[in-house]
Write a protein that binds this DNA or RNA. Structure first.
Lengths: 237, 237
DNA sequence: CGATCATTTGACACCGGTCAAGTTTTGTGG
DNA sequence: CCACAAAACTTGACCGGTGTCAAATGATCG
């Protein structure tokens, strides 16, 4: 109740996105004593599919993947999350997927009922959900319609901020169009995200290397030698 | 502003799902004169990807599909929506996909800014988003990890209300375990939803028929002769 | 009843999966 | 820092599930 009032006072107008107004209210809400902030090691499990969904989470620092398993062990990573993404949000009573850190992470933990009663949370959450929704749409295209090459290329491009989108400014006029990426994922995790096998991911990466499109600095550290060329391999253009 | 106040008075507590409280407020909001209700024919386009996202939509009756296109014409249907689902919700300024009716439909149209300023809308919208999110996760598993047989079987099971979920009650003790489905989709639309080709969809359906699992009453009207058996073909068990 | 469109079926090719080594990287203990 | 083991990754050979292309069949609607 107290949070609810505070949320109202600070937030007031609730938006579907495009504003940064609700965030101040959310930040204030996050400072309340009932909101905890936890540290996780890499590859810690935050929650399992089927666990009672009593908390919601906000990733402050690091990376988290959400995945689902089929009874025979096949795995699909459904989302890869970065700072400011929220997860564990659900309309049902149990989590619909597993959440595991990819890197050491700092995660804010909020009691579900607290958030439900807080308007500032609503607005903040909706904005997060909408962005994630778009990412899921894009990922459905990748999984349903792209070749292995296009999947891996799209995956690499996703780490290059500001490029590969519809409003891509193109390479800066001066110098080379390079970019170094820290994957923070094993080949298996990449494969399970892209709907491929580990061997196929490995083969495509080797081939990109052979063709000079990328250089492997360290197994999970890849240099894209020409971002613009890589972008043309994604199928999205 | 007026809507905002009304939403507050009627709604009060905002929830992340599981309640039906915000819905009354939403229903009242929907009755306001600025909210229009439109009728569409089958295969009408509601909006195109890239159109300025100035309105949000609530499907009252009928079915709608959302799809994305790659520059070379490949298509992926990312969501199939039914009554009470909302669409056109976005954090960015333009729609991220195309929306097209599958059947004649009744659709409520709300100005985006009106909804953004209405708390009742927030709560209602969040609930819809969460449910759609879960559906998208499930669909990612289908697209990334299921065989053609499993995809088509999963697709058919999705039309059997209350079965195939984790808490499936199983067949009713008495009599046969049949169910008749109206697809309302062409083979091409099904293929584009399942990430397959039209030929593969057709072959799988023919094969299910040959094996006696389904009977085709009319091209887009299929009888599942044994729901429980069909369910075991989905890979989800 | 014919024209048009949707669907089915067949033959074949190829992408990506499977299985089985190798090779490299990482981590641990001396 | 090195030695060794374990894990992660790469590479090769082969196969099978889907896609592609083409033709036949079936539905729909004047």
């Amino acid at each position: 109740m107290a949070y609810s009032d505070r949320g109202l006072a600070a937030g007031g107008s609730a938006r579907l996105g495009g504003n940064t107004h609700g965030d101040e209210a959310w930040a204030e809400f996050a400072r309340s004593p009932r909101v905890k902030t936890n540290r996780y090691e890499a590859h810690d499990v935050v929650f399992f599919e089927g666990d009672p969904a009593e908390r919601i989470y906000e990733l402050i620092e690091g990376a988290v993947m959400l995945y689902k398993l089929l009874p025979d062990g096949r795995r699909q990573v459904v989302e890869i999350l970065g700072p400011n993404d929220m997860f564990g949000l659900l309309s049902s009573r149990q989590y619909d997927c597993n959440a595991e850190t990819l890197t050491p992470a700092v995660i804010r933990v909020v009691d579900r009922r607290d958030a439900e009663q807080t308007l500032a949370a609503q607005s903040h959450i909706t904005r997060c959900l909408l962005a994630q929704m778009e990412a899921l749409h894009e990922h459905a295209v990748l999984l349903g319609r792209k070749s292995a090459y296009e999947r891996v290329s799209s995956f690499l491009m996703r780490f290059v901020a500001g490029r590969g989108t519809a409003d891509c400014p193109g390479p800066t006029a001066a110098g080379r169009d390079e970019h170094v990426i820290a994957l923070n994922m094993t080949r298996q995790e990449i494969a399970d995200y892209l709907g491929l096998t580990i061997e196929t991911v490995s083969r495509v990466i080797s081939d990109l290397k052979r063709r000079g499109l990328i250089a492997i600095e360290k197994q999970d550290r890849i240099r894209i030698t020409n971002v613009c060329t890589m972008c043309h391999q994604t199928g999205t253009q």
